[in-house]
Design a protein around this nucleic acid. Structure first.
Lengths: 222, 222
DNA sequence: GTCTATACAAGGATAGAC
DNA sequence: GTCTATCCTTGTATAGAC
């Protein structure tokens, strides 16, 4: 119980320490996310993470027992963030509007939090040593529910007949691509970074192609 | 000059040695490609590469002067292979057929040589330290030519009005996804590996959505 | 609870024997 | 030209001072 600790220090002091602790941990997690994403698990040294987080090297291992542990903590934080962005569609929803919103959300995530997508990508490319179980137990049931909804839309004649799995893969791929391959895209377009207007343009083009392929039109209310 | 060497050994002996040398080099390149793709640049040790290639550790550094050098050699081999698969479209071609063929080719590459796509992905995710120049000098001019062709198709009313850059990005993303995220896709579909029939199914679904989005139909001649 | 100093292993690279 | 043995650096992790 945390009350037991308060005996030896004033609530104010505890608060300060507690705040400092949380701040340090957040800084470490941020730094780790950045470096794991850009240099991979082995390429990101605990030393570099500590420097980036502006904390002494040993503190990183004090807060997170090992490098493995830190890596898992970073992944968990990303997943909890991503779960907020899971599409929530049901049979009665309007396909065009639902899919447009989902694509918009995914594009925004990819452009604004590219690191998270990249870290997820490197983990999966490695064979998902840490995430395979999670995908099996959490993502797969969710995936199957959404496939069922898409199939119901097809059966009801709301969208063109197409493999629902591949439709979902296409939405994921075409949005995450802007995070994972950002470097290449920016070079090809001779740009330094994405702008707010890019997010809209990407969403529009992507949605136009996918919705068009499903026999739908872009929602006018956007 | 290589003739100078032949003086001290019979042509047959030289041939044997030359063959052994080339075989060793190829084995090392294969092993390096596999390990760089699955473990990243830092995660793949020269030791592991040597073991995988079944040659003594020091030989790897004898043939390729350094780890950097080996990594570059692997990248170059991949690029020369990929350049064979660059889309070759021109204004007079039939959009539906040309794009279908290109999608088919990219899906086949992704499913049959996933390692190459994954290694390319990790390189770009890292910020393309080795490939940035190549992309700027080779891929960008090629990219611009193809964008011009797509724009000409739009101007001629052959395909729906859509941003040509994003169209190309969507083709790349939706096909390479099956290589880069193979682990996740197989788990979600509860499969062990891709089959020949998957390549056809993926091509069909992907082409159907993209061509549909462009106001085209799947070519019947396929 | 925080940080310095250090142990111990692994990796890249090289020198020199064969 | 090929391989063994070794050097040096870097990385993770821990022990112990403050």
């Amino acid at each position: 119980m945390s009350e037991a600790i308060e005996v030896n220090s004033s609530p104010a002091t505890l608060n300060k320490k507690e705040l400092a602790r949380q701040k340090s941990q957040a800084q470490i997690l941020d730094a780790a996310e950045t470096l794991f994403a850009s240099h991979g698990y082995d390429g990101a040294s605990m030393n570099a993470i500590a420097t980036e987080a502006k904390v002494p090297k040993a503190n990183v291992l004090y807060y997170f027992k090992s490098k493995d542990n830190l890596y898992e903590a970073v992944l968990e934080r990303i997943l909890s963030n991503w779960n907020l962005g899971l599409i929530d569609i049901s049979v009665d929803d309007d396909p065009a509007l639902s899919l447009y919103r989902y694509i918009h959300l995914k594009v925004r995530l990819a452009c604004e939090q590219p690191q998270q997508s990249r870290l997820f990508a490197t983990e999966v490319i490695r064979g998902a040593p840490y995430l395979a179980d999670y995908i099996r137990q959490n993502t797969r049931p969710w995936f199957r529910k959404k496939v069922a909804v898409l199939q119901a839309w097809i059966d009801a004649g709301k969208i063109t007949q197409v493999d629902p799995s591949h439709l979902l893969f296409m939405i994921w791929s075409s949005t995450q691509y802007y995070a994972d391959y950002q470097t290449e895209i920016l070079i090809l377009q001779n740009k330094l970074e994405y702008e707010e207007s890019d997010i809209e343009a990407i969403t529009r083009s992507t949605a136009q192609l996918i919705l068009g392929g499903l026999g739908l039109k872009l929602p006018e209310s956007i």
